[in-house]
Design a protein around this nucleic acid. Sequence first.
DNA 1: TCGTTTTATGAACAAATGTTCATGTAATTC
DNA 2: GAATTACATGAACATTTGTTCATAAAACGA
Lengths: 215, 215
Amino acid sequence: MYILWLYQRIKVLKSFAVLSMGKSTKKERFFEESLKLIHEKGYKATTMRDIAEKLNFKVANVYNYIDSKQALLETYLFDISNEFLDSIELIMDSSYAPDEKLRLIISVHIQMISKKPYELSLLVNEWRNLEDPKRGELLYLKKKYNKKVREIIIAGMEQGKFRVMDPDFATLTFLSSLRWLYDKYTDANDKNANTNRIEIEKQLTDFIFLGMGKH
Amino acid sequence: MYILWLYQRIKVLKSFAVLSMGKSTKKERFFEESLKLIHEKGYKATTMRDIAEKLNFKVANVYNYIDSKQALLETYLFDISNEFLDSIELIMDSSYAPDEKLRLIISVHIQMISKKPYELSLLVNEWRNLEDPKRGELLYLKKKYNKKVREIIIAGMEQGKFRVMDPDFATLTFLSSLRWLYDKYTDANDKNANTNRIEIEKQLTDFIFLGMGKH
DNA sequence: TCGTTTTATGAACAAATGTTCATGTAATTC
DNA sequence: GAATTACATGAACATTTGTTCATAAAACGA
């Protein structure tokens, strides 16, 4: 089935992501632990010394793994952003109907959130700590992504698949309704954090397509 | 009409909020400008010197307006949190049906967002910068609020007003779908920022109750 | 085993930051 | 006009923070 092929392609793309390419375990651990720390305390509140301490070495050694604190943030943010863009481009270029495309987007979001919840959290919460010009570049990518979602929604309305509504409004509400999930996945206390991904996808899709009302 | 009375009450409550009680214009300007700065740059990234500069005086003078940076953040966060709690308690104690209560909650959110967009932004983005024990207190208030929304949703499902769905899931998706609006209101570049509040309310309500699908 | 790369450290730095304090000036109140 | 309150400043402080550098073990490939 075509849909399976698409999933396949998306997974392939993911394996090429920058962060997962490192061979060395030490480097991997460095990026993982730094990521969690920044997620927990926030970018500004996380010091290079915090990171060093968590990894049981001294500050100076941090600079053997990354050029600067700013570069660290950039790595996480652009890595995840590009993944999103890659997958939405695949979806856009498919021959699926708009409603099916939206379903795929939901699906990709949930896959992403369950696999890279911390990166996603940074993307939502810490982008403003990027300094220009990187900040501008990231905002451009975000806009690009939103625009594609918007196109799908407009096409869906034109083809009678969606209710007619303000396109900008629909786009932003749609994306916003997806945004809380990373909380669930990054919350160590939430015992439901590992709820069946398929079930989560169904609940979300129903909410977005059917709404809460009974009809 | 009862609904109008409720709106009235909610407005009265709002006028008692801490921040709007100051008489002095200088103090008001101090809190307004500090708020905008913190919204723009983030709490950690905003220095006391930044605030002073924006208000055309020197750092030391900042401490004639507020005891500490931390106290400044507390003021904004608890002010808006309590407003939300006050209004949801009014709604809970009314005799409205669950679906009507949800509509009221949406309405209150939009009112709040249009009047205090910056405070709301802080509530979403900067609560983690509160130090304990205040941080714990705020999280408690948040939980309390979520729990009430959850109760309304459960009641709605029991009374056949809502589709049957996972209550936690519905609560969080519902709240999340409301959360993007403050972006719109705090974005000076968005020319639609002043879109008719009634229209926004309708679009949002439709999205939440009807979903995007056509049926 | 030699040479290279990886991983680590201590010391030092310049800049930034929250806060205090003693003191001064302007505005209000009575 | 005296007294009180509101608003403002310069100077200084102790910490914190990102970053550099010279150097040393450790691990590794040949």
